[in-house]
Design a protein around this nucleic acid. Structure first.
Length: 570
RNA sequence: CGGGACGUAGCGCAGCCUGGUUAGCGCGCCUGCCUUGGGAGCAGGAGGUCGGCGGUUCAAAUCCGCCCGUCCCGACCA
């Protein structure tokens, strides 16, 4: 491509709206422009990168036995009503009506549509397993879009769905997808980590996420430094306490605690360490209000709570509910005398003589003992892992990392096949539900994640497989007939060899061309100028290492092909 | 939805508090000269509903109200 003819608006200054590096560089390098919050235009160069990612995804999906389809982005409400998600998906689902007043949504995901297709077209075990995927624009009306392409409302996603006759078959498919995902992210030049994850509202039994490690990641990954255990913070298990509490129980006592409400205030006032304070949190669920008991220094994990209680939604109780249930102002809630189901975190088993709210204004109890004083309905893992915790598998030390989720694989099970009656006849002629799996990749998010991981002070450093161009050809002076006499045929020759070349034929000063080239992150830059041409050579510079070398003109095509081939490998 | 900030030329910003010339600066853009190995220099030029609506006032970018948009933190989420 000839630079002078391209829509490639680079920016010298960083737009004020961009906070993260990838967002800044995507805008500055002229890959995207914002149309509305969380909605972006892909400019020619940005689209080229997107296409590179798509091509890798396609190759590996096809190789793993999946078939590409393209499903409608606009979906009728009936399907969502059938699965039940029209009610539960909430405001994130963009809904609208057509001229006949029929309800539709813009697909945020396609379980319903694919299940509907398969139930109509697949009826026999002979047609299974079936693994279908698409690469398509999704829309999720995020509460808060942010970080450019990392969390947009409109985004490009690869979503795949598998249908197996049996769970055992589904496990094989899951494994195949898991491996394909590893190849995809490796080929994209990403440093990533696979973690155990919560399956969220899509539903299903278990899942893994593929996290690109980056400071700006929105997710926290908990990873064992000793073994292979790694999990999303919201999923990460806590190792149960090693030994039960040994302090002898002291007599229960109610004490006057004026204006003492928070855990820290209670600990200070009573001269106790925070872990000796019992934290009582009231949660509202569709199944009623429950009380969650934790050690004062621990944080509740709402995802665990939700899964444990098997409810759709948990919400910290409002002030009014707390007052109604405890008959005391917020800050004095405690388990004693509370007429609610009590669920305690495992860690409380190893503690004795705790301070807790008395459900009475300005009062707390001290020397509360779990076994003696409370009727705990159930102990469970309900809290967030802390950096001081140990690995639940091997008790090794944990590290906390930040990651950007670029892929997610789920075992869905029968959730949708059951709700939508997707069945087949087995070899015995018996009707059976299909066992489903679901596999997502944030294609546009990968573009941002790759930049997040590959940049320096001068701009983007694209990994070769994602680079919009492989070679940037820079003639120093476009008005110099000698230089152009070499540059033009060289451009033609390299292009004819299949290399992707951006030919900077702009009438600009060298400095501008170099700056733009670095910003764009094209892996190899070939400079032609009087200095090099006098020696029948070109200067080749490697973007990442900044290493420069003079290569004879006649050896240049082979040199570039060799170097690029080396860098294409994961 | 709660908290915070912002909205002035394509981009980055000043002016607003304390109302009053043709609303300014840097970058970018156009023309010419000059220059050509890391965002040059000189000269000339184009480009603005000061987010929108309403109000106060002789007079509003500036003060007041409402609305819209954008970003950040949180809740939420693949």
């Amino acid at each position: 491509m000839r630079y002078a003819r391209m829509l490639l608006p680079t920016l010298k200054e960083t737009p004020a709206e961009a906070e993260t590096i990838s967002h800044q560089l995507l805008l500055r390098a002229g890959l995207i422009r914002k149309l509305a919050s969380g909605i972006y235009d892909y400019l020619p160069v940005g689209l080229r990168v997107l296409r590179k990612v798509e091509a890798i995804v396609r190759e590996e999906m096809n190789r793993a036995g999946a078939q590409e389809v393209l499903l409608p982005a606009v979906q009728p409400a009936e399907l969502w009503q059938e699965s039940g998600r029209w009610q539960v998906y909430g405001k994130e689902l963009l809904r609208f009506r057509d001229r006949h007043d029929r309800d539709y949504c813009f697909g945020p995901t396609h379980e319903e549509v694919i299940t509907d297709l398969v139930r109509r077209e697949v009826h026999s075990y002979r047609q299974l397993p079936l693994n279908l995927y698409q690469i398509q624009t999704k829309f999720r009306d995020e509460i808060r879009p942010r970080f450019g392409l990392i969390r947009g409302r409109e985004f490009i996603m690869k979503d795949g769905y598998s249908f197996d006759a049996t769970e055992a078959g589904a496990d094989e498919t899951y494994q195949a997808m898991y491996e394909a995902y590893g190849r995809i992210f490796s080929r994209c030049g990403l440093r990533f980590k696979t973690v155990e994850a919560d399956s969220g509202p899509i539903g299903g039994s278990f899942s893994h996420e593929f996290m690109v490690l980056a400071e700006t990641g929105e997710d926290v990954v908990v990873s064992c430094t000793a073994c292979a255990y790694a999990a999303n913070l919201e999923k990460a298990q806590v190792a149960p306490p090693s030994n039960p509490g040994s302090d002898p129980p002291a007599p229960l006592e109610k004490v006057y605690t004026p204006e003492v409400r928070t855990v820290t205030e209670v600990a200070d006032f009573l001269q106790l360490p925070v872990e000796k304070v019992l934290k009582t949190l009231l949660y509202e669920t569709e199944a009623g209000v429950v009380a969650v008991l934790l050690r004062g220094d621990h944080e509740v994990n709402e995802v665990k709570l939700k899964n444990f209680l098997k409810v759709q939604d948990v919400n910290l109780a409002t002030e009014a509910v707390v007052q109604r249930e405890t008959r005391a102002p917020v800050g004095f809630a405690g388990p004693l005398g509370l007429q609610l189901p009590l669920y305690a975190d495992h860690s409380l088993r190893s503690t004795a003589n705790l301070a807790a709210g008395a459900n009475e204004d300005q009062h707390h109890y001290i020397n509360v003992n779990i076994e003696r004083d409370l009727g705990i309905r159930e102990f469970a893992d309900l809290r967030q892992v802390a950096p001081s915790d140990f690995c639940p598998r091997c008790r090794g030390a944990l590290e906390f990392l930040r990651g950007i989720e670029v892929g997610h694989v789920f075992k869905l099970g029968y959730k949708y096949s059951q709700a939508m009656n997707a069945t087949y006849l087995d070899a015995q002629g018996q009707e059976q539900l299909m066992y489903m799996g679901c596999y997502g990749i944030g294609v546009s998010r990968i573009v941002a994640a790759a930049i997040e991981q590959n940049n320096d002070a001068d701009g983007i450093i694209f990994p070769v497989p994602l680079a919009p161009f492989q070679v940037l050809l820079v003639p120093i002076a476009v008005n110099d007939t000698h230089t152009m006499g070499v540059a033009e045929p060289l451009y033609e020759e390299l292009t004819a060899l299949g290399l992707e070349v951006l030919f900077d034929d702009r009438d600009e000063r060298p400095g501008i061309k170099f700056k733009d080239g670095d910003l764009l992150g094209i892996p190899f830059r070939v400079v032609l100028g009087p200095k090099t041409l006098a020696r029948e050579a070109a200067e080749v510079r490697h973007r990442r290492t900044r290493e420069m070398q003079l290569v004879p003109l006649n050896a240049l095509p082979g040199f570039l092909q060799d170097r690029l081939r080396m860098e294409m490998l994961p």
